[in-house]
Amino acid sequence: MSLSANPETSALELPELQLQELQRRFRASVLGEDDGPVLPLVAAARGPVAARIAVYRNTVQASLTEVLAVAFPVTRRVVGEQFFANLAGRFATETPPRLPQLSAYGGDFAAFIEREDVGRRLPYLADVARLEWARGEAYFAADAKPLDAARLAALSPAEMESTVFKWHPATRLTTSAFPIYRIWEVNQLDVADIPRVDMGLAQSVLVSRAGSRLVTRAVEPADAAFVRATAAGENLAEAASLALAVDAAFDLQRALGDHFINGTYQDWET
């Protein structure tokens, strides 16, 4: 098959317009089902044109489905391979890539799940997909120098309290009304025996990068409030106050220690 105009079709005379129109119709065809508009513009050396276009459609849709399967392995495991393939295929048709970079594809998948029937049957699924997307974003995020805890310790108490912690570019917080960390954890590919999960537990998950390692961990509601407050530009004292308002037993020292270890924050400018 060649994507040149069928010599017998002279409706589109200008080469440039012809190419644009051909591409537009071909794109519609590989993303959907209707070959009608593109067929008259395509010449095939042998075999039916529709069957040859189907090869392209299958390749496009299978590629996008595979990209989503790589980006959302837990979501896929929760619903099963076949169901996921169907879901991903419909997503690909409805929301084709906007960037020529497959790692950037899938950011709208969680919202798509929410609109689908499965989002009502499995109300936690969209948040699980959000967590997986957060991990993908963290993986590809820019590098930055992590916060130097020793430098912080050298500050006076007043300076310390007014310090604003800046999120590392890889840091992502996903908050859910469901136990998304637990679901993510028990659906790792090496977990064979899936336990029953208490769906009444609400969890916040913090994704960060420590060096080249991606860290995925559940954080207490108070710690989540702390992290959220720092994202909003609150200083250390204000963020700690907000966390303590959520839980008076919030252990700031322990939480800070974990943030230092796991690279939640980046170094500040002087």
Partner: peptide
């Protein structure tokens, strides 16, 4: 038939 979830959601007890 592909529209039926066959994954771990059943085992986790996360159905509606």
């Amino acid at each position: 038939w592909m529209l039926v979830e066959t994954g771990t959601c059943l085992k986790m007890g996360g159905q509606m």
